[in-house]
């Protein structure tokens, strides 16, 4: 069984094609990076496999189930820019939302859910901020809180959209360490990521795409001049990024 299995996935908005005939499989218990240039359809890929946007495909399965059946076993962390950070909600209550899918209609979170939310905050090192309003946190702290919410969902498959954007180095460390721990616990984590320089270090498997699939496999297989040129139109994109970041 694959954590994610996609065959012949195409997505189009009105006239423009965002993804075309994309096929990929990720085995369970891996840390997977989705990489590619801006506008390559990385976020679209994640949203399409969750069934959040209309798409065409011969096969989409998550954890061997249809997207609909897998819903309560999948956790999604949206891009930070899509959230209204002025929303009147405290950190602990934001994490508590992670318990909603299992609670279902009409049931309210109880003490045990609060305790779960608190322990998830501890795992991301944010327990001291439980009573803060979410807008009072730094970008990295906000991302950690959303990761805590995903933990509270107790999902087997985690999908994260650009979790390292606008995040300080310390938080990035905390997040990647935690993602590795989760992977070692047997969970599958799929991360949309744009920084090529760290991709080889962070991920077990990479999917390089630019509207269509360019390459999929181990970082060593994916990150070489020919495939990078296929995605970015410039074989040195990878090298330039490495120089800048080192």
């Amino acid at each position: 069984m694959y954590a994610v299995e996609v065959e012949g996935l195409s997505v189009s908005y009105f006239e423009t094609t965002a993804l075309e005939q994309l096929s990929a499989r990720f085995t369970m218990g891996q840390l997977v990076g989705i990489i590619g240039p801006n506008g390559a359809g990385k976020s679209t890929f994640i949203k399409a496999i969750m069934g959040l946007i209309p798409s065409e495909a011969t096969t989409i399965t998550l954890l061997g189930l249809s997207a609909k059946e897998a819903r309560t076993r999948v956790a999604y962390v949206p891009q930070r820019s899509t959230i209204d950070w002025d929303f009147p909600i405290r950190v602990l209550d934001a994490v508590l939302i992670g318990c909603y899918p299992k609670l279902g209609l009409f049931k309210r979170p109880r003490k045990q859910h609060r305790q779960l939310a608190m322990s998830c905050l501890e795992r991301v090192g944010m327990q001291d901020y439980a009573n803060r309003q979410i807008g009072e946190l730094s970008g990295g702290q906000q991302q950690r809180v959303f990761l805590a919410r995903a933990l509270a969902q107790e999902a087997e498959l985690l999908l994260l959209d650009e979790p390292f954007v606008g995040v300080d180095a310390g938080s990035e460390r905390v997040i990647i360490d935690l993602l590795r721990t989760l992977r070692d616990e047997g969970k599958t984590i799929v991360v949309v990521h744009h920084d090529l320089s760290k991709a080889a270090d962070y991920f077990d498997t990479l999917l390089l795409l630019n509207r269509r699939m360019i390459a999929v496999g181990s970082p060593a297989d994916v990150l070489h001049a020919k495939t990078i040129e296929g995605a970015y139109g410039n074989p040195l994109a990878f090298l330039q990024k490495v120089e800048v970041s080192s």
Binding site: K47, M50, L52, K68, R71, T72, V74, Y76, P78, T82, I83, D84, F87, I89, A94, I97, Y100, P101, L103, L105, F106, R108, P109, Q153
Partner: peptide, 21 residues
């Protein structure tokens, strides 16, 4: 009162709400 949870999550993070069905 009955739909407080649903109103909260769809106001705060509609994408996550849609993701869990």
């Amino acid at each position: 009162y009955l739909f407080y949870k649903e109103l909260l999550v769809t106001s705060f993070d509609p994408t996550m709400a849609a993701a869990y069905g």
